[in-house]
């Protein structure tokens, strides 16, 4: 399995070399995308110097934390978004006739993926950590790494859940779109600014708040104004990522038994 994974990355790199223009366009897009989001954040914060007790520097860190986890997910698990299409078109068949786990095979469909966004995220996060004045110890580095993995796990768990739904439903695009916009819109600000309903959703239903809000309160030593939880709750992120991934994977396996393919 490792050999196959290595081969997959080898092929990815080779194809990127072939499609250089495409790659640079994507990279430019990633920079513009996150740059715009951060600029919008800065403009907002010029008008409100503090948002529910969060300064611009702290919000920068909040965003960088989400961005890096999300880009880690994109680098490793991006192919999951193609699953509904594979299923609808019957192209999923092939994953059944090869001697590996179907999900593993989905993740290793050569796709010109490169962890450029993740590297950009790491740089941004390093800057943001510095700007936010977080005292960095080896332990901080370790916990940040764990939180990033957990965040990517939450992302994976949720996208895998939506993908697995398509074993039963032909179209899940709308649902996927809703989930994606929720994630993009509601991870930019501290969740304490939202109404109670939204907060509950972000903490307990689609736990995007664990990708950045809760861990950020921990690293920044802030009081959680949303639920009044202790900052250490932020350290639960890896656990929640694992839980979501595990549950979605079980759901996925259930879906496999339901796979009907297409008629031709």
């Amino acid at each position: 399995m490792l050999a196959a994974y290595v081969q997959y990355w080898k092929i990815n790199l080779l194809t990127i070399a072939e499609y250089r223009a495409d790659f640079f366009m994507w990279f430019a897009f990633t920079i513009v995308y996150h740059g715009t989001a951060l600029a919008a954040l800065a403009v907002t914060m010029l008008r409100f110097p503090s948002m529910n007790g969060w300064s611009l520097r702290e919000m920068f860190f909040l965003y960088a934390l989400w961005m890096t986890a999300h880009e880690l997910h994109n680098a490793l698990f991006f192919n999951v978004v193609s699953v509904p299409e594979y299923i609808r078109e019957g192209r999923f068949d092939r994953f059944f006739v090869r001697p590996f786990d179907t999900l593993f095979q989905v993740l290793t469909v050569p796709s010109r993926t490169f962890p450029d966004g993740f590297i950009l995220g790491l740089v941004t996060l390093a800057i943001a950590t510095h700007v936010a004045g977080i005292h960095v110890t080896p332990f901080t580095v370790l916990t940040i790494a764990a939180v990033l993995c957990g965040g990517a796990g939450i992302d994976l768990g949720i996208s895998l859940f939506v993908a697995a739904l398509s074993f039963w439903l032909i179209r899940v695009d709308t649902l996927r779109w809703i989930v994606m916009s929720l994630e993009q819109d509601f991870t930019r600000y501290p969740i304490s600014i939202y109404t109670r309903g939204v907060r509950i959703v972000l903490a307990y239903v689609l736990p995007f708040a664990f990708m950045n809000y809760f861990p950020a309160t921990y690293f920044l030593g802030k009081h959680d104004a949303a639920f009044g939880l202790s900052p250490e709750v932020g350290l639960l992120t890896p656990l929640i990522g694992l839980l979501w991934t595990a549950l979605s994977y079980a759901f996925w396996n259930l879906g496999l038994r339901h796979y009907q393919g297409t008629g031709s």
Partner: peptide, 24 residues
């Protein structure tokens, strides 16, 4: 399956074969 290829669309044949070598 004559109707549907098992090969990877964007890859040259050799790359698909290399991948299969690793898989099996």
């Amino acid at each position: 399956f004559g109707q549907r290829t098992q090969l990877y669309w964007d890859l040259p044949l050799v790359d698909s074969f290399e991948l299969l070598r690793a898989i099996y």
